[in-house]
Design a protein around this nucleic acid. Sequence first.
DNA 1: ATGAAAGCGCTAACAT
DNA 2: ATGTTAGCGCTTTCAT
Lengths: 364, 364
Amino acid sequence: MRRLDDGSRGVATLPDVAERAGVSTATAARALGGYGSVRETTRQRVLDAAEALGYRANVLARSMVTGSSHTIGVVISDIENPFFRKSLRGITDTARSRGFEVLLANTDEELEKERSAVSLLEERRVDGLVICPADAGDRKHLREVIAAGTPVVLLDRRVAGLAADTVGIDNRKAARLATERLLALGHKRIAIVTGGTPEIRERLVRPDMKGVERLSATTVGSRAAGYRDAMTAAGLTLRPEYLSANGFRREDAVDEVCRLMDLAEPPTAILAFDSIQSLGALQCFRERGIRCPEEVSLLGFDDAEWADVVEPPLTVVTQPMYEIGVAACERLLDRISGEQRSPVHDRLPTVFIERSSLAPPARS
Amino acid sequence: MRRLDDGSRGVATLPDVAERAGVSTATAARALGGYGSVRETTRQRVLDAAEALGYRANVLARSMVTGSSHTIGVVISDIENPFFRKSLRGITDTARSRGFEVLLANTDEELEKERSAVSLLEERRVDGLVICPADAGDRKHLREVIAAGTPVVLLDRRVAGLAADTVGIDNRKAARLATERLLALGHKRIAIVTGGTPEIRERLVRPDMKGVERLSATTVGSRAAGYRDAMTAAGLTLRPEYLSANGFRREDAVDEVCRLMDLAEPPTAILAFDSIQSLGALQCFRERGIRCPEEVSLLGFDDAEWADVVEPPLTVVTQPMYEIGVAACERLLDRISGEQRSPVHDRLPTVFIERSSLAPPARS
DNA sequence: ATGAAAGCGCTAACAT
DNA sequence: ATGTTAGCGCTTTCAT
């Protein structure tokens, strides 16, 4: 064991193992790495020596010469969000099963944090990145990392003009279907709680929600477009006051839903764009003593683990969160192992789970 | 930019920057790293060259020579568990603010996965580890990594005889207090849903729960001991059928709580050892049409984000999950930067949050 | 203040 | 089948 005296950790290195086994480092490396050819007896000798010394390969050193760190970076906005958390699990499970480790970074939807995360991960020479890009703003850093040759796959949100694979769902269709369900129940006053930023709100409230589908925040944009499609197809006029985008946090949603319910003509149904927003709506109902679904129906995106245990049990459109993570990671790993093709956009199917938060509108 | 032609990524290296700036690599390194001494004009020239080439330091190479990867490994059982995920957020936030990255591994409470996770993280030369050790079994791998000189801090669970810092709460006291609250309400038939394994169950059901406090699964053990302390202090006899340990997953908890409620003399109050168990209990109540708290009271550990929105809103004993993560990470980082002291066991305070899932026992 | 040169621990030609 | 050797990109003495 080398350098035990100079204060450093007493870790055995390849030369140590080689010496003990009485072979060259090359042979030791071959035996340990299971490549090239080594006589069986030699291999055994090396393995024994490694075992005896408690040898652990230094993956960093290996990465330096092979140029591959066998690490992927995951950049998501918030691990607290059920969507990302479950996707992350899909990513890590897949990565590990293929011998990759995962470096994690939270951005809290802040562009600056996203930039620094990407930068730090680049410095660590990750072999690729799974990113859920911040909703708006400059995408230079993403363009650069792709240009530098690092494969990137986008999770959940699509970014126009970026040469990266994308994995998510068909948001526009899912939102349209969800809205149609509400419409079929007889609802006409349907509000959306998007969790978007104030800037997004400005786009939402343009006449006829024109151009929302081209919002940089593609998830919100697409879902909003799906909502608009269904509403206009039903011959309904869009009310700007039913289009909410007040921030992605739960408190924001509580405030927003309360505002909605305080309207002279409150909505009879609410479509919440993610589980945090649903939770906010539920909290508002509880605080105000508003009965759901008698007074207002609630339809949410994402089947959080608590969705069937709240009051009322929540009817949801669920995305295959874990599978989205798996698919994203697989796409990435394929690219890393050299697959060449133009960017693909995977759209996984959603599922409608009927529970008890929907009812026809009350006669008023 | 080197090797752009041989197919590798077009990343600039230190020599590239040095060449362009017309200095040696040593000077370039000094300018970039901000150490040693460099003339101001030289430094500027190097910085400009780096900027122009889009130079990103290769942290791996740096690690090789410095011996520090500025990375910590986090080994937890399941990121889906609110406790771990909030702790993880505390860990990552703290690590990042001090310039460290986080490598994540899930173990699903499986010892084998824990072993391999620790091993893989060691190979990556993490500077330290935050581990929530599997509940039972052999701890050789932990002992070894500590012996090899890698600092380790234990999250949530304590392991007897391991020279590692621990960060968690005073589980025994928290459980005793929780049980006393139930007792004060008049409950005598109080069950615990621990989420432990069948092996743990065997220890639980020994006469008078003797020796539970010495269980290898220290969280369950300590909490069970706290429960026992309160029950015996109140002069109550322990009923083995009220001591449940059927697995940590939600379905396990559902089954177990249903079994409890099917007893000839079902408990009038249940103490759930984590939020997953609480969720399971709630689901059982819902499926069986059991009214809570009228027919049975439920007191849970951990304040999950849904706790105030379920029916009934859940009364809980909450651990400062985020703060536990922060403290664990800080302990670890201090050790990494050379702090020497005998292992400490931080016990952060718990908070009791009164909501609506507790009531006096029904007259029967 | 700056440069030359020796590694960190490993892999990968190229020899033998 | 095995050994020799030259790096991977960086930091760090030791000179100058």
